[in-house]
């Protein structure tokens, strides 16, 4: 049999789909916002994802890397990402302009259990780039506002200039149906009107919550988890209602390359969203 012109019977999960950068701009000094559209219209519309899932983005010649989808499935067609410049792929992405082509495949991972979260109170705590996946849930909750009870957001950044989606969050603060508190570790501008301090200092500002029917979500830099989870536990939120997304090295996103393995868990399939209960019961998780 001739190897080259063989008809393949199964679809190739590694094959990226061409997508066009519709809009891109800086969110902070080293984080850029990307809005992309899968070129094939049918595929663009059938790209069905849930908040907390991620996609593999590739640039020909530079490589491929996983990124959380930060748009909401309630606004189909366009996919949004916030990406920090750290290495090969991300540098290549930063060089790209509107209308340039990238590769995308996904969505992958388990995502947040939005079905279970329905008719519950939602408490979201984010820091830094953790905004990427949690913005998706937040927008999803707001777009389907009647399906959720109280929605609260605590958002921390190092400095005002490093607060991702700063304007968007300031606008959200005005909404009556959302409790939103913002904080920066330090204010080097002298114009910051919100709280100063790490994100955990925002907890006392929260209106009283009903722990047994609250889902608490956290995502941010690794150091943040320990302290935020401590606060959740103090509030008596059940361990399996505390949700977090974890980062691991990922090369395939589809449970094949092994890089994201923790014990027998594949972060790309069984994660990246885990409950605090999972974390206690698995070595190595955080």
């Amino acid at each position: 049999m001739n190897g080259e012109n063989k008809q393949l019977t199964i679809s190739n999960p590694f094959l990226p789909e061409p997508a066009r950068i519709v809009r891109t701009y800086y969110l902070t000094e080293d984080v850029k916002f990307f809005q992309v559209r899968v070129v094939d219209m049918d595929k663009a519309l059938s790209f069905k994802y849930c908040p907390g899932q991620f996609a593999m983005i590739s640039v020909v010649g530079a490589g491929e890397a996983p990124f959380s989808i930060s748009s909401t499935p309630s606004r189909p067609g366009l996919l949004e990402f916030c990406i920090r410049k750290v290495g090969g792929v991300t540098n290549a992405l930063f060089r790209m302009k509107e209308n340039d082509l990238i590769g995308i495949r996904g969505p992958y991972g388990n995502g947040f259990p939005v079905e279970r979260m329905r008719d519950k109170d939602i408490l979201i705590v984010v820091g830094g780039l953790g905004t990427a996946p949690l913005r998706s849930v937040l927008l999803y909750c707001l777009d389907n506002r009647d399906q959720f009870r109280r929605v609260s957001l605590l958002h921390g950044a190092k400095r005002p200039s490093e607060m991702i989606f700063r304007e968007e969050f300031f606008a959200l603060k005005e909404r009556e149906d959302l409790e939103c508190h913002l904080a920066v570790d330090g204010d080097d501008t002298g114009t910051w009107t919100e709280n100063i301090g790490v994100v955990t200092t925002l907890f006392p500002k929260l209106k009283e919550i009903d722990p047994s029917s609250t889902y608490a979500l956290v995502c941010g830099p690794p150091v943040m988890y320990k302290f935020v989870i401590k606060e959740f536990v103090k509030l008596n939120i059940p361990k399996d209602q505390i949700l977090m997304t974890l980062e691991r090295r990922m090369k395939c996103g589809v449970g094949k390359c092994g890089h994201c393995a923790i014990d027998y868990i594949y972060t790309c399939l069984d994660g990246p969203v885990f409950t605090y209960w999972d974390v206690i019961h698995m070595r190595e998780l955080i």
Binding site: G3, K6, F14
Partner: peptide, 19 residues
């Protein structure tokens, strides 16, 4: 090789598979 790549994009490469 999983794919050959050019500026036009990706092409699947199964050339290493023979009967």
């Amino acid at each position: 090789s999983m794919f050959s790549i050019s500026d036009k994009g990706y092409k699947e490469d199964f050339s290493h598979i023979t009967k």
